[in-house]
Design a protein around this nucleic acid. Sequence first.
DNA 1: TATGAATGAGCGTTCATTCAT
DNA 2: CATGAATGAACGCTCATTCAT
Lengths: 200, 200, 200, 200
Amino acid sequence: MNIKSKQELKSKATKQKILNIALQLLSEKGFDQMQVNQICKLAGISVGAFYHHFSSKEDIIIETYKEVDEYFIQHVFPAVKGMAIRESIVEYIGLQAKYAADKGVELISQLYKSQIFSGNSFFISSDRALPQGLKEIVEKGQQNHQIRNDLSSNYITNQLLRYARGIIYDWCVHKGEYCLIKEMKTSIELFSCCFFKDNN
Amino acid sequence: MNIKSKQELKSKATKQKILNIALQLLSEKGFDQMQVNQICKLAGISVGAFYHHFSSKEDIIIETYKEVDEYFIQHVFPAVKGMAIRESIVEYIGLQAKYAADKGVELISQLYKSQIFSGNSFFISSDRALPQGLKEIVEKGQQNHQIRNDLSSNYITNQLLRYARGIIYDWCVHKGEYCLIKEMKTSIELFSCCFFKDNN
Amino acid sequence: MNIKSKQELKSKATKQKILNIALQLLSEKGFDQMQVNQICKLAGISVGAFYHHFSSKEDIIIETYKEVDEYFIQHVFPAVKGMAIRESIVEYIGLQAKYAADKGVELISQLYKSQIFSGNSFFISSDRALPQGLKEIVEKGQQNHQIRNDLSSNYITNQLLRYARGIIYDWCVHKGEYCLIKEMKTSIELFSCCFFKDNN
Amino acid sequence: MNIKSKQELKSKATKQKILNIALQLLSEKGFDQMQVNQICKLAGISVGAFYHHFSSKEDIIIETYKEVDEYFIQHVFPAVKGMAIRESIVEYIGLQAKYAADKGVELISQLYKSQIFSGNSFFISSDRALPQGLKEIVEKGQQNHQIRNDLSSNYITNQLLRYARGIIYDWCVHKGEYCLIKEMKTSIELFSCCFFKDNN
DNA sequence: TATGAATGAGCGTTCATTCAT
DNA sequence: CATGAATGAACGCTCATTCAT
């Protein structure tokens, strides 16, 4: 291992440390009440160092979504490969629910809350890995003639993701009182019927 | 009219005046850019008077909730009376969308934002007029054997409302870029198929 | 009982109620944090009623001292009548300590704290019943030739009271950790020697 | 001198500058009338800089405590070295009075006020330089058989300091109307008799 | 790379007191 | 005697971001 990679490793570790602490604070106090100063104090770094790793406070949120995408690329895509279309859609969105449940209702609530007024629209961007993955499944289903072709794959994907976000939002409003994963599975099974040709 | 009620009347008028101007500013400029000072200047009252009627700036948002049910009782219930089941459901939730569109994306965003962490769960209480009205329609549909009887009226109602809230949330995240009313109509028509016996 | 005295009784009761609640708040939160509004809410009266009974917020403090004087006139003066000079001085100031201990360290702390910057000087006024009573004892002692005549009765009285206040202040700083009554007794016995002719 | 210490030096200088100006204003106008804005304007810094160095306006008061012991170690200890016991006690406590008088009644009032409810008990800690110095004098006096041995040096020291604080508190309540230094001298001479064997 | 002192415009909020009713 | 809506000047404090070192 050479010097450069050592530095890189340390840099990555610092960034991850900042991110972890920031997310901790985010879920505890919310975006507005999470102060850059405090993150730095807890992470044992200087304010300058923070801005070396993140271009702005909001960048924390964006990085988090990148983490989600990473999770989907690493774990979800392989998991649904080879499944039947129906199952893979339910599983795919089910794993989105699992991710949210794992992160905890506090953090997810804060993310959904801050999304409403954030400048960036990373959350709903169709370019992200998460929607892309689902779109691919839908398109495969359309090629197989299992999924309706009178609606574009984009439309169907967005409908499904919006529905999923609606359920997660609902779960947040209910303060995580019910099992998100189970609820998501049932609801997606119900809703996805709208897009399949054989409704039974 | 005695002295006491005169005072009360004046007090109520002042409160309503503050509320009107505040909501005006809220939808024009957003919560953060809506300044207490400005509200007071426009309302022709002192800052102290504002804080006499509202315990904080955020209180403005909370007061708004109370208007929603009033709107439904006054306008929505009569409007859907006598319609066919399918139409009445679409219309009912469509009017929810209309209400949101009328109020403006800024105000609705604030409502959806503050719901996530509010102590009260106004949104999701089944006791409110809004869900009750929808439930009645669903039950009528079940009695007519148009709507599935294997799912409870409560379940179907909650599904529909949650889906609607999901779309409104999505509309907020998209900063009101698309027409909520049209989107809601199409989406509900799509989704409601899941609950009707004859899916065509 | 005629109408007038009924009214008077009610008035007195209201005033006492305000005073009790105010003192409760005073000891809990301190003078600055005790709000007139809150007092009124807790007492179930209007703000106007408060200002009917008290000319200002600070008046609460002044009334409290009047209560102290009342206590001394009612209970302390009779109690020390007939005692020997030495005993009566120790007893007199001892009862001051007892009063403080009864009221609790919180309230006394707040009183001592607010005294430092109060506009009124009721606390240290020589005209009050409390210092007058002690002065009489000292003068009696001087006439009996038990107490030094080279110092004025005023001077001795002030020295004793100041010393007593110093001890009470100390007790406050120590958060009432020691027994004020015992400490006061011992200390006054020690200090009062300075003013007696036969020091043994 | 390296970069780091340069920064540190500048930081310290700024903090000291703020402190000096704040204390100046404090004794001139009192705590409430001393405005953070004004401090900053006079110090030629931004409001943010003030809050970078002090967590609140009250923090100014707290910082002042730390100077007292320094003053005693630097000035008082040398001054009383070699004096006779009686003189040194009077002088020692007299210099405490001089310190208070020099600082001004406003500042000292603030100290005495905030002591009552402060978390730390700086005033009454026996570990500080101030009480330690007095205790040493008392112990020397006991070894010389000038001071009573039936009372512990601790007890006598505490009695004297408490008495002194009582007088300073009284001086504060009287808004510095009389000469604290003269009053302290006379009073300590009077009181200290209680602890000397030859009372004349 | 990293530090951390400095920026500074801007805002919500307080609350004893009054006085028309 | 009692009410309580209204006053309104005044102030402490925030905090993301920058940049000289």
